[in-house]
Design a protein around this nucleic acid. Structure first.
Length: 108
DNA sequence: CGTTTGACGGTCC
DNA sequence: CGGACCGCCAAAC
C-alpha cells in the first residue's frame, strides 16, 4: 500500500515545529507535487480523514490565513497560531519569514 | 467522459 | 503595489 500524495502532505504538516508555519508551495515543492493547489485540497480532506493534522500551520506564500474559512470556525486558525506565539494580524502572519519553516531545508 | 472548481504560485501589465 | 491571467493536477459534477 503506497502512500498517496496527500498522505505525505499530512506527514510533512505534522512535522511542522511548534510556533512555526509553512506554505502550500513549500510543501508542494518538497513533495514535488508540481501543484500547490493539491496541498490545500489534501489538507481539506484531512478533516474527514480522521488524521490530526495541524493545518493551521499551513498558509499561502503571503502568510495569509487563506484556509481559515475551512476550519470549524473562521477564527480558530488565527487563535491557534496566536497560542503558539505566532503574531497574526488581520488574518496575516506578521514577520512571516521569521516563523517560516522550509521542509526542503530544515527537514532531513 | 468533458467541464468546472480549488486552503496556490508566478508572471505580466 | 495590485489586479488579471495562466499553469498545476486531482476530485467533484
Amino acid at each position: 500500500m503506497e502512500k498517496t500524495y496527500y498522505e505525505r502532505v499530512y506527514e510533512v504538516t505534522q512535522q511542522v515545529p511548534y510556533g512555526r508555519v509553512t506554505t502550500y508551495g513549500a510543501i508542494a515543492d518538497y513533495l514535488t507535487l508540481g501543484a500547490a493547489r493539491m496541498v490545500g485540497w489534501a489538507l481539506n480532506k484531512s478533516f474527514s480523514s480522521g488524521e490530526d493534522v495541524p493545518a493551521h500551520r499551513v498558509v499561502n506564500r503571503k502568510g495569509e490565513l487563506s484556509g481559515r474559512h475551512h476550519f470549524p470556525t473562521p477564527t480558530l486558525m488565527e487563535e491557534l497560531l496566536l497560542q503558539e506565539g505566532v503574531r497574526v494580524e488581520d488574518n496575516v502572519i506578521q514577520d512571516f519569514k521569521s516563523v517560516f519553516w522550509n521542509p526542503s531545508e530544515e527537514l532531513v
